[in-house]
């Protein structure tokens, strides 16, 4: 069996009096695609936010690549080999596509901000630009490099956001609703990309689009009201009665999509 590279144990997150996550335990194995599904407000993005350091964990522990560690700050994430895309895409509209992707590689800059401030980083920057261009090519967006991000079509912004996450060469990729707003053709492309990526990284996928989840995920965790109500293979989850009641609806039990 593949090695477990990420273990979240008994994570709870509170927003004031509201328990957004309650004793959630999730583990991710090397090379797998792990689905996180659940109705709106179930706590999927909160789990990503806790793992990314955007919201504090009230309780719970984190083990990364076999070592216990504190919950990371957002700017530490890429250095730990974790990259994340956001639900709202989150490109910088005033920057070019290439600049947006280069930002994702900021962690690869070997020089500090002080050296950068006095202009000793030229070669580094050229290297990053090259890497960003390569990654854009990988998501079929190489021709968009010089465009401003706010001139892109929605599907293209999704491609660029994924390229930005990939450019840091993460070991763990957190994808937050990558299929949202995409047409059938783009979704087919995304499915292929996710499968290909598992050769270099493991993926946690938050997604409402059940066709995508069921076709690319090795295992799925189902959240409801901040708690894990089921986990297992797509087949097991599809047939779990609690899941059917909470989220998928009766039609899913008979093989239906979204």
């Amino acid at each position: 069996m593949s090695q477990t590279i990420l273990e979240i144990d008994s994570l709870s997150v509170n927003f004031g009096g509201l328990k957004a996550l309650s004793n959630v335990s999730v583990n991710l194995r090397e090379g797998e695609v792990l689905g996180l599904i659940g109705p709106n407000g179930a706590g999927k993005t909160t789990l990503f936010n806790a793992l990314s350091g955007f919201v504090p964990a009230a309780t719970g522990s984190l083990k990364l690549f076999g070592s216990d560690r504190n919950w990371p700050r957002p700017d530490q994430l890429v250095h730990l080999g974790i990259a994340r895309t956001l639900q709202g895409v989150g490109l910088f509209p005033e920057l070019t596509v290439l600049e947006n992707v280069m930002l994702g590689a900021d962690c690869l800059a070997k020089t500090g901000l002080v050296r950068a401030a006095i202009g000793l980083t030229r070669r580094d920057e050229e290297r990053l630009a090259q890497r960003a261009q390569t990654m854009l090519g990988r998501v079929y967006a190489g021709h968009l490099a010089d465009r401003r991000a706010d001139t892109l079509s929605y599907p293209d912004t999704k491609r660029v956001a994924i390229a930005r996450a990939l450019v840091s060469e993460p070991k763990i990729l957190l994808l937050d609703e990558p299929a949202g707003g995409l047409g059938a053709q783009d979704i087919a492309w995304l499915n292929g990309l996710i499968r290909n990526l598992t050769s270099s990284c493991s993926i946690i996928l938050v997604e409402h689009h059940m066709d995508v989840v069921m076709s690319v995920c090795n295992r799925i965790y189902v959240l409801n009201f901040g708690e894990v109500i089921a986990n297992g293979t797509p087949e097991e989850v599809r047939n779990d009665e609690d899941v059917i009641a909470a989220y998928l609806g009766a039609s899913a039990a008979h093989g239906g999509g979204k």
């Binding site: 990314s52 957002p74 910088f92 920057l95």
Partner: peptide, 11 residues
């Protein structure tokens, strides 16, 4: 422009 996304990029 957006400190949160910048942080996620390691800035």
């Amino acid at each position: 422009y957006n400190p949160e996304i910048a942080r996620l990029s390691g800035v």
